[in-house]
């Protein structure tokens, strides 16, 4: 912690940049490290700081930052569009841990990445009928109302406790999604009155199995309730709500796994757009971070949306469970350490 603060102090000072001022800048930096060294207590600590600084702070130029971030974001876009979670799960840790960007700006970039993944992938998913448009739109009632409630409740509810609760919910979802791995057959009948009235049932062409798979939708009411919670949570914690949407559709409404993922992709853009305006107004969307993230994630989502049809439902389920387990730990850590 101490090391990181020392580095940031020097990186922020304008004297370190120019050829003339560099000697003065680095000297003051060294003095700073001497004091850091005494705090840390050890020669190795000080040497580590210098090495860290030369490779990390000095070496990476804005161009290098933009190029590497585009590549990483593209990978985030592929993963996000496959499992229906958006790119935030990769973008936030990469920005904070690898590039040492403040969490506020990382979250702003993450919301941009979610919208980019959602719109980029959903264009293909809707066209190829992989996403269930009508079900998605129906469930958006829950997510948008949840997001608005969340905006009112931000000051009332304890955020850290919420992270812990959310982590527990995700842990359970991961377990339940994992347990369902053998029951893959789609439903052929439905007595769900809302689903029948709105015509929410659908069918999709499964490239991996090489046939059209019709499916029925059930559990619209518990599904809608879970979507409300998903919208609420994403507004309160500033995280993508796909992690709750996919299990809700997969476990409660019995949509095929791929359809759940594609429909979640379709929906998360709207949920994220509902809070993106706030992040913009608060000054959390830094163009030099958001631009490479948006470009990379969009490219990745185009690749991911072409892959989903060809990959087996079971594979998507496995990837989803693994990603969910990682987010579960991440949330728990944020809840415990603050």
């Amino acid at each position: 912690m101490v090391l990181r603060r020392a580095t940031r102090d020097q990186g922020g000072s304008p004297t370190g940049a120019g050829p003339g001022g560099s000697s003065g800048g680095s000297r003051s930096g060294e003095e700073h490290h001497l004091s850091t060294q005494t705090v840390v207590g050890g020669l190795s600590g000080a040497r580590g700081t210098n090495k860290y600084e030369s490779t990390y702070n000095r070496g990476v130029t804005p161009l290098g930052f933009v190029l590497t971030l585009v590549v990483i974001s593209a990978l985030a876009g592929v993963l996000g569009s496959l499992v229906g979670l958006g790119g935030g799960i990769v973008v936030v840790p990469v920005l904070t841990l690898l590039y040492h960007v403040d969490i506020r700006l990382a979250i702003g970039a993450s919301i941009v990445s979610v919208i980019a993944t959602s719109s980029g992938a959903a264009a293909a998913y809707v066209r190829d009928r992989m996403a269930n448009l009508r079900t998605g739109m129906f469930l958006e009632i829950g997510t948008t109302v949840g997001a608005i409630s969340g905006a009112f409740l931000t000051t009332v509810l304890p955020v850290r406790a919420l992270f812990v609760v959310f982590s527990a919910v995700l842990g359970y979802s991961a377990f339940a999604t994992f347990r369902k791995r053998h029951a893959a057959a789609a439903l052929t009948t439905s007595d769900d009155r809302i689903a029948n009235a709105l015509g929410l049932h659908g069918s999709y062409y499964d490239q991996a199995e090489g046939r059209e798979i019709p499916y029925k939708v059930v559990g619209t009411r518990p599904g809608l309730a879970l979507m409300y919670v998903a919208g609420l949570v994403s507004a309160l914690l500033g995280i993508g709500s796909g992690a709750l949407k996919v299990p809700a559709m997969d476990l409660t409404m019995h949509l095929p796994m791929k359809v759940s993922s594609a429909t979640s992709n379709f929906m998360i853009g709207v949920t994220a757009a509902a809070s993106a305006g706030v992040y913009f107004a608060r000054g959390q969307i830094d163009p030099i971070i958001a631009a490479p993230v948006a470009i990379g994630v969009l490219g990745g989502s185009l690749v991911g949306s072409r892959l989903l049809g060809r990959v087996e439902n079971a594979t998507i389920r496995w990837i989803f469970v693994a990603v969910l387990a990682v987010i579960c730990i991440e949330m728990l850590q944020r809840g415990v350490t603050g």
Binding site: A17, G18, N57, T61, P62, L63, G64, D102, D286, I288
Partner: peptide, 18 residues
Amino acid sequence: YGHLSGPFSYHRLTSNSA
């Protein structure tokens, strides 16, 4: 901004004071 290596760090553009 456009050099692949150099003294100008991206960090000045991504800090809280950007």
